[in-house]
Design a protein around this nucleic acid. Sequence first.
RNA 1: GCUCAAGUGGCGGAAUUGGUAGACGCGCUGGAUUCAAAAUCCAGUUCUUUCGAGAGUGUGGGUUCGAUUCCCACCUUGAGUACCA
Length: 942
Amino acid sequence: MNYEFKSIEAKWQQFWAENQTFKSEINPDAPKCYVLDMFPYPSGAGLHVGHPLGYIASDIYARFKRHQGFNVLHPQGYDSFGLPAEQYAIQTGQHPAITTETNINRYRQQLDKIGFSFDWSREVRTSSPEYYKWTQWIFGQLFESWYNTALDKAEKIETLVAKFETSGNVGVEAICDEETPLFSGVEWNAFSEVKKQEILLKYRIAYLADTEVNWCPVLGTVLANDEIVNGVSERGGHPVVRKKMTQWSMRISAYANRFLEGLNDLDWSESIKETQRNWIGKSVGAAVSFNVLPIQDHDNPITIDVFTTRPDTIFGVSFMTLAPEHPLVAQITTEDQKEAVTSYIEATAKRSERDRMSDVKTISGVFTGAYAEHPFTKKPIPVWIGDYVLASYGTGAVMAVPCGDQRDYDFAKHFGIAIPNVFKDQDISETAYTDKANAVITNSDFLNNLPAKQAAEIAIKTLEVQAQGKGKTQYRLRDAVFSRQRYWGEPFPVYYVDGMPQLIDTKYFPIHLPDVEKYLPTETGEPPLGRATIWAWDTVNNTVVENAKIDHKTIFPLELNTMPGWAGSSWYLFRYMNPNNTDAFASKESLDYWGNVDLYIGGSEHATGHLLYARFWTKFLYDLGYLKVQEPFQKMINQGMILGESAFVYRVSGTNKFISKGLTGSKEVEAIHAHIDFVNISNELDVEAFKNWRPEFANAEFELEDGKYIVGREVEKMSKSKFNVVNPDAICEQYGADTLRLYEMFLGPLEQAKPWSTAGITGVYNFLKKLWKLYVGEKGLKVTSTPASKDSLKTLHKTIDKVTRDIENFSFNTSVSTFMIAVNELTAQKCTSEEVLKPLCILLAPYAPHISEELWSRMGGNSSILNEKFPLFDEKYLKEDTKTYPVSFNGKMRFKMELSLDLTKEEIQEIALKDERTIKQLNGREPKKIIVVPGKIINFVG
RNA sequence: GCUCAAGUGGCGGAAUUGGUAGACGCGCUGGAUUCAAAAUCCAGUUCUUUCGAGAGUGUGGGUUCGAUUCCCACCUUGAGUACCA
């Protein structure tokens, strides 16, 4: 009987579905294990062979854990709201609801063929109202909360209101807008309702504010910082401009420090942690105010506020630099410098932010004519403008210490500004001295002879006494913009009264996304929700009304923006725990039992987006007491991308003649992507298929070498437009899902990017055929109940040991090799014993579940092989006849030898003496004495 | 520029963490089987070679009896980040 993978795989996929084999329930008696994949957004292109890589790895792990007796939660769903899904809909001219549905069905079909152990009864879709009801609910919680820095946690807004009523906001330690004015309790109580709401908005974690945002005109929406790469949109690569707009934001920066601290306990790759640390960008230092001279109003002087990480070098300040956009520039520039300053600002404004960033070398700047007063020496310091200072970071102004900062140094040299040295025994004639750890301060009055760290502390204290500064920790992490001027996202459960946002009572959730016809984004930023229809909230009937007249009495305007794509994906891991709950985002029982994700598998490109936002919402829900865990993903593995091998044909420029790769020589040719389906393993092009591909190629001429047209190959990202996509369905069709699973793992280390090549798949396919033959012969099952030979047991336990360790270390590629060796050895040993073949079958089950189930049932196993215990490794089968002997002489360990156990001391010595390593090291000398330490070590004393 | 990761046959990649480098697979060569092909099986396959051997894990040093593995310097590639005060 041959290995009929098609019928086997169909049979078991059906069996698993009918028996709900992968359905998981809470079981307090069993240890839990939550294995999660980053859920896909259902794009129109369907899955290519790169997508399942991570899913296969997590599936192997999940199945392995089940064999080990864990209660495994392994769900899957779809991130179906957001830009990618909507862009696809727009490109194909269909409604996003339709394309999303179609794409999900396609994905599901493809996923089902690969035999994953997903518990589909827990499927979630971020775009379904049952799901986004709770996304809206969490938004409501964020809106109704503030961040208490005294307790370092988020709290309900009522506790803040209570504080305001008794003593105002004086002494309230909170994360809030910078320009929040102080008020007393009496004043608060006298404020109008609108005024109160206006103030509370400055404290809410989800808040509405006029902010400078990244506006992308082509996409017709604002974007968060992590959605912009190199100054253009991550999706599509469209230009992004700065624009002031009223937008919802999230006070994610409140959590900056907790993000950093939490990283230490996470089992994530160092590079991802480092990326997050950089993104959060913590710098410890001081805020310092410099008075602008002349001081006219001593109670309320004009000040230039700066942030510095080096308050210890404050005596080295020889000038100050403002960003060209700094608001003080116009105010302090003197008459005679006005012209120079104006023309400089004009010149820099012409250069885009990108140009400024890429051109780091050119030093430019202009003197304002103004001076500021040094807080200690009281000497005047010239104030300059320079475009090396960015308006968007810190205060947009720096105190320049040329001796301690290279940029300040270069600027000072360029403009001939003094460079006072405040570092003891350091030469700064060529370059700045930037080492903070070893610096000792000098020429600095009361800071003389202090190491930098102490000097910084004393400088801060002194500044505090003078009320001209204080210690400050600055973060690069900005608050996250939370509204999008798009259709395909969660509507905000918010309406407006007197311009102030009001949260709709949660009992009326979800606020459904209306089914509008005109869902396209606009270039002006007008949200699609309000364009085709008037969308409003009826406070009498507590319902959304369309095309009703907004009277601001009972009918109020609704928020027309929608939430960004990351809203739904920031908490989906918790919804899987209890996906059909209509009373809560998940029940307390399920949240407490499943905790957080034990293993998360996905791409590393989400380091500063999704992964940070999910941590944010998890910590917030923890603060409010809904969760027991502070981190969503305990361990994470980032699978590498599978790349495609594109094929190129070479057309002589300006003609319709194609030249085989070897003949191109110095001819001027253009490389054109050819579909990889037209190319065989030897890189030979099917010329006829190529001609029929496109009308423009129908009459093409081909110059062949050896009668063949050879294409060029190049490794690129797998993409439809590069015609290099390999579809997993085709592989399943030809070789089966088990082969696909094994081969994807066999390709190379999981975390490494690697090109896909179907060429090697026959090796894995052959392995499965050999495996089949080991168990099943012409006349049926070959497995017998005879005891296994020593050799076979050794092979088995070698395999158990390696495979177990491999799964725990996620080196699945070497496991596949181990299986191949095992099957070759057992075949050679003519092993038929179920003592060996049964455990081997279980070992293989996580990798190749279909064939394992089939063999298991043929061997008389009950129900699914998943209920079987994973075999345990026993050293005795390996160490029975050989032992590793460390060989040493002169008291030093020399090398190890693997020798038979039956040997006597004398025999061991003899063998060790004949070993070429011993001969080389003794170099002709006779060892005087040979010591055999009982059990293990042989000593030669030379 | 900075941070991180990596460099091993024709190719993908192993190496029990300092102990006979190249497991396993692809490809290639030869053989068996076959009318033939596919499939399957067996043998070989790092390079050089005067067939005795020699060289060999990006390059150059170092530690060690012994280095793909540890240390130093450099080169190359990939990823992330970038005037962050």
